[in-house]
Amino acid sequence: MLEFLRKYRTPLTVLGLLLTALLIYSANLREKPRTSAVERTVLTAMGPLLRGVDAVTGSIGQVWTRYFWLVETARENERLRAENRRLRAEFKTHSELRLANQRLQKLLGLRQEAGLNAVGARVIGEDASSLFRTVVIDKGRRDGLREGLPVIVAEGVVGRIIRCAEREARVLLVTDASSAMAVLVQRSRARAICRGHGNGLSMDYALLQEDIVPGDLVLTAGTGGIFPKGLPVATVLRIDESKYGLFQTIRLVPAVDFSRLEEVLVLLDPQP
């Protein structure tokens, strides 16, 4: 037996590792919506680092605008100019605060208007690869979050929580290629399925006879059990009508600018 193991050590190692990898993958496919202990541990370990970088980049930005700028102006030895610049830098900082305030007020307004039970969160990280579209937020189970909850901003739908640790959670954006949801066109009430394509969205299974034109607003249909009805998703950009098919394929422009995602709302009790 030992002789056999020694002789075929390499093929047995390869086989063993491959089987392990396949088992892990297939086991996870069956229990997809759950966050495993490994994922929770890595997310929890990564959270403080991401929060730290978030805080440090903010501080460095302030140091850059205040300190280095002042050093440069001191070299020029123009006191009034330096004063002017310092005031401008402060104004910029205040503008940034004002903009953040506006964004948060918008979110708060949305929450109050719709009577939603929601938790605000900050985006602290993004997906580790260029293929998937997920982000990390700084709220988790401790704040009442769990897998499957919808995430929105004032402009529209962002995505849903797929993994949740104690203080962090990962959100699958609607633009991810594995993301799909039921939608309807606001003007004509035509129903379809909205899918992600990495950077954009498309609307599939809209019947050829449905009345859809560029510029139409697309909303959540509220039938998937995740997103409440009536949240903005996208605007119709282009319609590709097939001569022989049953459906039209529609390209959409997402309502949310995902490259500038900073604060989001997680709906705790979505009412479909």
Binding site: Y25, S26, A27, N28, D127, S129, T134, D176
Partner: peptide, 14 residues
């Protein structure tokens, strides 16, 4: 990598 990317644990492992 799968813990911080995508939604399928074990995909990048394989």
């Amino acid at each position: 990598r799968d813990c911080m990317s995508g939604s399928e644990l074990g995909l990048h492992g394989l």
